[in-house]
Design a protein around this nucleic acid. Structure first.
Lengths: 221, 221
DNA sequence: ATATGTGAATCAATTCACAGCT
DNA sequence: AGCTGTGAATTGATTCACATAT
């Protein structure tokens, strides 16, 4: 499955979820296109990677398709997550309902600050970074969230990789260099604002787009 | 300037900043490529959009290039930002040092909860959503951050657009539909985890990439 | 010698357009 | 009649490769 398609699956998932909640049973690619802002042909090609789940002349069964998308994203499994760095952002993520949705579960919190270690955040006791590897193994963590200051992130990431973590969501504004097949996904909040500043400063000169579409953030390693 | 290039400018900016901090004066596209994970030819083409700032045989003057990139991103201007929704995430953003870096400045905070309105968060008094338009105009806000629950986001976005905001960074897991030329950039934390779950569940079967590169998140309108 | 800037080639994703199914 | 699934066409970005500049 191509990367851009994978990146859109959560978008379809959300749209399908809202449809299943109401009473709509079938949905066409045109309807999904309208709901998600993705072109209808692209919707169909994306979904075709998951197999043939549509009915010609009718559309897709929303519930069935939702199941299929969630299975593709492995959301039917349990995903214990460890959050490293219980500062402003880490704390927000640990408590966030959005974050805790689906199979994701904040299984552990890690920090180095002795004033934070041992405290309870969102019902989870914060543990010390020295115990990182043990915690990862104990909780069978495969996905980690790095919300440390930039200068600590590389070392943390290396220890996570060594402890067997498969994927890292990195909020630290630094490029993580890791050996092996650990997937790294970067979210750089300052960068997002900078891109908006670029467009905001050119508001008058914008070509009139059909949509307010954006180029995706750079997520490179 | 093409969208993908704009999305990489913040990445170059960060790398250049770190170089200027130390003593390095010139930097080649190959060196920038190594630091950012972007291909050297792509670096050169991206930078060529900003004009000819390199010296053949030598490379780029890091300080000069940093200035040029920051000017392109309009970071030499002041960017007052309003954050709507002072929950876990909004609070974290308001207090975050990363967020406050560069020209960005949290000029106002907005919420509807009477227990939150009037309190001080990161040195800024939280104001009521009823005063949204007045606050936007008073602070000359062009960029807004939406960190409300999903069901409130669309209405908030419409009022922001009506008040003259040019760009919205949307953390609510919902697609904002707006008329006019307001740029919307979505950050969906659950979606980021879902993408990682996809790859995490396929860890064994991954083709051996040169990098741990990721497909960018879908940021469509 | 070395590294830029850019035509030309390549690669990948999007979109069109329609055959084929219901 | 309507909508999927997919070859073919298109679009756009990336990368190669080299003439050009210092």
């Amino acid at each position: 499955v191509p990367g851009p398609t994978v990146a859109r699956l959560p978008v379809y998932r959300r749209a399908l979820e809202s449809l299943v909640g109401s009473e709509t049973v079938t949905v066409s690619s045109a309807e999904l296109a309208r709901l998600t802002g993705v072109n209808a042909a692209t919707v169909r090609r994306d979904l075709s990677w998951l197999g043939s789940y549509g009915m010609r002349g009718t559309g897709y069964d929303a519930g069935q398709l939702l199941d299929r998308v969630e299975r593709e994203l492995a959301l039917d499994l349990d995903w214990p997550v460890v959050v490293i760095g219980v500062g402003n952002l880490g704390r927000a993520l640990a408590r966030s309902a959005t974050f805790a949705s689906r199979g994701f579960r904040v299984a552990a919190l890690i920090d180095v600050d002795p004033r934070i270690v041992g405290t309870l955040v969102g019902g989870v006791v914060v543990e010390h970074a020295d115990d990182l590897a043990a915690v990862v193994r104990r909780e069978r963590v495969l996905v980690a969230v790095v919300a440390t200051p930039a200068d600590a992130a590389q070392a943390v990431a290396e220890r996570l990789a060594a402890a067997g973590v498969q994927a890292i969501l990195n909020f630290a504004p630094v490029r993580l260099r890791l050996k092996g097949q650990v997937r790294v996904r970067n979210v750089d909040l300052a960068a997002e604002l900078e891109v908006l500043a670029f467009y905001g400063s050119r508001a008058g000169r914008l070509r009139a787009d059909r949509t307010n579409e954006e180029a995706p953030a750079f997520r490179g390693a």
